[in-house]
Amino acid sequence: MENQSLTKQIGEKLKKLRLENKLSLDQLSARCSVSKPMLAQIERGASNPTVNTLWKIANGLGVSFTAFIDAEQPVIKKVNRSEIEPLIEESGKMKVVPLFPMEPGKSFETFYIELEPGCDYHSNPHPDGVEEYLFIEEGSMTLEVDTQSYIISSGESLRFTANYPHYYRNPYSESCKAMMIIHYPSSIR
């Protein structure tokens, strides 16, 4: 898979996961609230899914976000985030770089994220038991979880249960750069 584009890799993995779960495109569409034509385009590698769309599909299949981009991992792996193709949210103001996808036997995945000024990203609730850990490297963001709002800035960290709607916002004049770990319960692969 190393020479294939990320879009094609996501499409192939989506189709494999859908077939492993014995789901038609219609059935998956009903589970994840993503249209059948969009799912078909993603599977063919004809459409690059947004972060939000990929989360909906992952939740519908009961898999991790990085299940679509994982590959067999060596014992030691060094990554340079500038060499990883980022996922860009539809507004273009949020960049997600999957650093360490979830691997068999592990229950977490690690991302680098950047929120540009004016970013207002809504994340749908994740399955019960999923937790997110944020570590702010530069700048600040406002995180809203359910009805609570938190401002987190450079040097600060925050952990929350992610089975509520949550919003990542950057109302500030500088970019917010952060590391994120998503921890999954054992029921999610």
Rank of each mutant, 00 (worst) to 15 (best):
N3T: 14
N3P: 14
L6T: 06
T7Q: 15
K8E: 11
Q9W: 08
I10S: 03
E12Y: 09
K13V: 00
K13H: 07
L19S: 14
E20C: 03
N21F: 04
K22I: 07
L25W: 09
L25K: 04
S29H: 10
S29C: 10
S29W: 10
C32Y: 02
S33H: 14
P37N: 01
A40W: 01
A40C: 06
I42D: 09
E43R: 00
E43D: 08
E43G: 00
R44I: 01
A46R: 00
S47G: 08
N48S: 15
N48M: 11
V51H: 01
N52F: 15
I57N: 02
A58Q: 01
A58R: 06
A58I: 01
L61I: 01
L61Q: 09
V63N: 00
T66A: 13
A67C: 05
E72C: 07
E72P: 05
Q73H: 11
P74T: 02
P74Y: 02
I76E: 13
K77S: 12
K78C: 05
K78I: 12
V79H: 03
V79D: 07
S82K: 11
I84C: 02
L87W: 10
I88Q: 08
K93R: 10
V96E: 05
V96A: 09
V97H: 11
M102S: 12
P104Q: 11
G105R: 05
T110D: 07
Y112F: 13
Y112D: 03
L115K: 00
Y121M: 10
S123G: 09
N124S: 12
P127A: 08
G129L: 05
Y133R: 14
I136T: 08
G139N: 13
S140A: 14
T142E: 15
L143N: 11
L143I: 15
E144H: 03
D146G: 11
D146E: 13
S149F: 08
S149N: 06
Y150A: 02
Y150D: 10
S153G: 09
S153D: 01
S154M: 09
T161G: 03
A162Q: 07
A162C: 08
N163R: 03
Y164R: 12
H166M: 12
Y172P: 11
Y172T: 00
S173T: 12
S175Y: 10
S175H: 13
M179P: 02
I182K: 06
P185G: 04
P185H: 09
S186C: 09
I188C: 01
R189A: 04
